[in-house]
């Protein structure tokens, strides 16, 4: 069975390093990018099974990318990940398949990824 391919989008290289380490060890194929453009390019190539998306990407909002993904790749699950729960108030965030508040404990994020991948299959 092929490992699921996850794309992490976060403007902090430290988080990308953390995701690469933690999710690779769990058997996923991990790809990362720090920009919306990078994510857009990578998604256009295809082969991504799930996107983990930070909402605040520097000065731009990841919610715009979320809307774009849901319009162009409707079956692709997206897990929103951010440090602050207020973004749940933004209706756009409801398009996401799961919503996880960033934590040093990655258990919730891992669970959300598993759940969304299971539902997508």
């Amino acid at each position: 069975m092929t490992a699921s391919r996850l794309l992490f989008v976060d403007d902090e290289e430290g988080f990308l390093e953390l995701y690469r380490t933690a999710f690779s060890r769990d058997g996923y194929t991990v790809e990362t990018t720090g920009t919306i453009e990078g994510a857009r390019d990578r998604l256009a190539q295809g082969g991504i099974d799930l996107v983990v998306l930070d909402i605040r990407l520097g000065e731009v909002s990841g919610l715009a990318l979320l809307r774009e993904i849901k319009a162009k790749h409707s079956g692709l699950p997206v897990v929103l990940s951010t440090a602050y729960a207020r973004y749940q108030d933004d209706f756009s965030s409801w398009l996401a398949d799961a919503y996880v508040v960033k934590s040093s404990e990655l258990g919730e994020l891992k669970q959300a990824v598993r759940r969304c991948l299971g539902a997508a299959r």
Binding site: E12, G14, L18, K102, S103, S104, E105
Partner: peptide
């Protein structure tokens, strides 16, 4: 939360 989650996670 951002830096703390990152530091703790790593």
């Amino acid at each position: 939360k951002n830096p703390l989650a990152l530091a703790g996670g790593l």
